[in-house]
Nucleic acid binder design. Structure first.
Lengths: 246, 246
DNA sequence: CCTGCGCTTTGACCCAGATCAAAGGGGCGC
DNA sequence: GCGCCCCTTTGATCTGGGTCAAAGCGCAGG
């Protein structure tokens, strides 16, 4: 079965083509992927999947923000992945999920049935290659995150989070877009705390501290103005060269 | 050029065939890999590579223990990867290294020139597939590690480390081998501290605490006896099901 | 056998961040 | 416009683990 690219919704219609699964595919390969993909949406706060669930789809985030979290019985929760548009969920070759996946804002996913997706992997080396590249990028990000969790102070953690958000939301394709000084946070204080290995009170206090020191300005509690990125960068504790944080 | 498998040192001679790069290759593919591989050894304490170095080889650990570490100027250091036999170093598609790699004990690496290795990846889908699988396993391990760094207490961190070491050294291929109660630690207190996001003093105190509570017994400072793995597991703070920690 | 050196343990004290508690907002339904 | 609820901020206090300092301890070299 062949499908006209123009007639069907195709990967090239995704706003995330630059980084997602299909980034390197040619038109024919897109048609093949297209045959097995479907979209799914989740409301803010909704659980997308829970630890232990059978994982029979893999997916790419089209819009919105989701989190991967690991919890222990006594309630302690650590975020282990922040999923922004173009990020990938799930892994070919493993049948059950290791983490809780939650929609933080309204989320649209581009899903693929796992079995046919795995079959395609064998036939389309581009996708396999792309997945490896994404997995290794995520691994690098996870390692930077480990440095943050293990060795950074609360203030450095907050500054690092803001830099990360700034990079991801302002330069999604390596290009600066829009006002670089205004940053809209897609996540609550609690989500930040779970991200950073802190409590919400400490997160709040550090925001206040950075505001009082003129490093940031707050507009409501979801919008941050960053007068000078360099000043913020200095607060992160990172080396000058920076490097990828996610 | 074809080489007799018997005549040349081949991947099948590696003691790590069960998990390493070549795990799924057939004999012909092994020959291809064999043509570009070479062994290299490093003495304990030696730096294998530093952050920023050009990365023109990738490698698999044959024997010994190495670490990946990320440091910030003021001396704070966080280990971000513990490389035991069969683990993979480097990533195809990226030219420079993000972390410091250090030999903790004497280390033997099975190396591949990056360029020809990348060329082989395109031709041998098994290897690409295997690399993706390993990267995803490492990612899962990194995420468990993030939970440890962000939310566990010092005692839970030490117990988790001991469980991890026990799993890796006692069950390298999923099978129990040897005395499960005796564990020889391949790393110093300082290395453990960098692993766990603690100081050496805290590591030492927690060892003492676990010893006084009868959870472990110490024999010198590199050998630990674990009378009851279940008791130790309870100290890790992990859910009952456990899951992979590395 | 002594000495020196590096690793480890122990002790005393301190502080960043957790915990417990209470007081702001701000948006939404009525 | 008025409550109500949830999120956030602020305050007061506590404590786990860091910091600083000083002993052990094992072993290599003389």
């Amino acid at each position: 079965m062949t499908v006209s690219l123009a007639a069907a919704p195709s990967c090239s219609s995704c706003p995330i083509r630059h980084r997602a699964v299909c980034a390197r595919c040619d038109d024919d390969e897109l048609v093949r992927l297209n045959e097995i993909k479907f979209y799914k949406t989740y409301a803010a706060g909704q659980t997308i999947a829970m630890r232990g669930d059978a994982l029979d789809v893999v997916a790419s985030v089209v819009s919105g923000t989701a989190t991967l979290e690991r919890a222990i019985e006594d309630g302690r929760t650590q975020m282990v992945g922040l999923l922004l548009p173009s990020d990938f969920i799930g892994r070919p070759g493993r049948a059950t999920l290791q983490y809780d996946v939650t929609a933080v804002s309204d989320v649209t996913l581009c899903c693929f049935q796992r079995k046919p997706f795995e079959a395609l992997l064998i036939e389309i080396p581009h996708v396999q290659e792309r997945l490896l590249e994404m997995a290794l990028d995520e691994l690098d990000a996870a390692r930077d995150w480990m440095l943050l969790l293990g060795r950074k102070t609360a203030r450095e953690k907050i500054a690092s989070l803001l830099m990360l958000m700034a990079k991801r939301t302002m330069h999604p394709d390596g290009q600066v877009m829009g006002d670089t000084s205004r940053l809209e946070l897609p996540i609550s204080r609690e989500t930040m705390a779970n991200f950073l290995g802190l409590t919400i009170e400490t997160v709040s206090r550090q925001f206040t501290g950075l505001r009082k020191d003129g490093v940031i300005a707050l507009d409501g509690n979801r919008v941050v103005h960053i007068p000078d990125l360099e000043t913020l960068l200095m607060e992160t504790g990172d080396d000058s060269d920076g490097g990828p944080l996610i």
